[in-house]
Design a protein around this nucleic acid. Sequence first.
DNA 1: CGTCTAACCAACCAATCGGTTGAATACGAG
DNA 2: CTCGTATTCAACCGATTGGTTGGTTAGACG
Lengths: 124, 124
Amino acid sequence: MAGDRLSRAFAALADPTRRDLVGRLAVADATVNELAAPYDISVQAVSKHLKVLEDAGLVTRSRDAQRRPCHLQADVLDLMTAWIERYRRETEERYQRLDAVLASLDSDSDPAATEAAHEDGAAS
Amino acid sequence: MAGDRLSRAFAALADPTRRDLVGRLAVADATVNELAAPYDISVQAVSKHLKVLEDAGLVTRSRDAQRRPCHLQADVLDLMTAWIERYRRETEERYQRLDAVLASLDSDSDPAATEAAHEDGAAS
DNA sequence: CGTCTAACCAACCAATCGGTTGAATACGAG
DNA sequence: CTCGTATTCAACCGATTGGTTGGTTAGACG
């Protein structure tokens, strides 16, 4: 239980080889040997990478004789963007609030607006 | 030079503590001690986490006397979503292409459409 | 000056990671 | 049954990680 789903997903994509694998699987499903061909690391290493991606829920595997075709699973990607976008949006909103305060301070011909901004800050 | 910008960013967010730090920094800037308070790990450990986030470009630090307030930098988050969304979109498009083929096969009253789909696949 | 606080650097430790090699499993073909 | 192919398992290695503790720098304050 070292990490939750999100931790495993981010950790999985932290490796360039694994990101490349995801990029190629986005185009088409493929077997381990096919995926391993372009890299100059052993097939076992690629198999390990795929296991990491599988444990992260990014990849599923089916059975076709002795082949194990890999298939990209997109929903975890959605989970990741959801997490990231939430906080990106929050910082953005914080910027806009700051801009509003600065604008009201700049043209301090309207002391009521400035005071409202202060109240807003204190309320949080 | 173990990893590029993207690798460092994903690796940084692979840790739950670091994700929590990002979540809190999205709300407001904070100093190391303020950030460390809620966790039951040492301040040094939190400082290390912040250094990881800083190396990943997710956090910048300014100077205020002996304080080092941390500030969330949103552009790397954009870079990550850009990467993720690219491949999520690609898989989605692949699904739609497959659906189109299946639909044309189902009602095979239109052999031209089926053949077009085959040509599309061979063209890649 | 000395002292307190905020933060960092350095050394260390157990655990994990990315890679290797070698052996084992699973399956199709002859 | 035997052979070849595809894949995984197991053990090992060097590097990194997340955490600790102890000492050090930087700056505010008496």
